[in-house]
Simulated scan of single mutants.
Amino acid sequence: MEQLGLSLGIKEVVDVGFSITHEEYMQHIVLQDYMLAIGPIILATIMSIRIGLITYVLTTVLLVII
């Protein structure tokens, strides 16, 4: 959109295009920062649930065998 405004020489189109592009970029950066911060926590939670489930299943199997 910015390039269209520049090629047509319409400053208003350039300004609108720039503000939209800037807003999308800022939202992307915020989402990326969020995922970098929360990703390890989510992964640790998933792994903890899996380990807990495996432990539960193994304990149940051992109790049935014994």
Rank of each mutant, 00 (worst) to 15 (best):
M1N: 06
M1D: 03
M1H: 06
E2I: 15
E2Q: 12
Q3W: 11
Q3G: 07
G5K: 00
L6E: 13
L6W: 01
S7P: 02
S7H: 15
S7E: 15
S7G: 05
L8T: 12
L8A: 05
G9M: 10
G9W: 03
G9Y: 14
I10C: 05
I10D: 12
I10R: 03
E12S: 05
E12T: 07
V13A: 06
V13S: 09
V14P: 03
V14I: 13
D15P: 02
D15A: 14
V16H: 14
G17D: 06
F18Q: 09
S19W: 06
I20V: 10
I20P: 01
T21I: 05
T21S: 13
T21V: 04
T21G: 10
H22A: 11
H22G: 00
Y25L: 11
Y25I: 07
M26I: 12
Q27M: 15
Q27C: 07
Q27F: 04
H28N: 01
H28G: 05
I29H: 11
I29A: 15
V30S: 11
V30T: 03
L31D: 12
L31F: 11
Q32N: 10
Q32D: 11
D33I: 04
Y34N: 06
Y34H: 00
Y34T: 06
Y34M: 07
M35L: 04
L36N: 10
L36I: 06
I38L: 08
I38W: 05
G39S: 11
G39H: 04
G39W: 08
P40Y: 00
I41Y: 04
I41P: 00
I41E: 09
I41W: 01
I42H: 02
I42G: 00
I42N: 08
L43Q: 10
A44E: 11
A44D: 02
T45M: 05
T45L: 02
T45A: 05
I46H: 02
I46V: 15
I46M: 04
M47A: 12
M47D: 04
M47Q: 07
S48R: 09
I49D: 09
R50M: 14
R50G: 03
I51M: 10
I54Y: 09
T55V: 13
T55R: 06
T55M: 09
Y56G: 03
Y56R: 00
V57E: 02
V57A: 11
L58D: 05
L58I: 08
T59F: 08
T59D: 08
T59C: 06
T60H: 12
V61G: 02
L63Y: 05
V64L: 14
V64Y: 14
I65P: 00
I65N: 07
I66G: 13
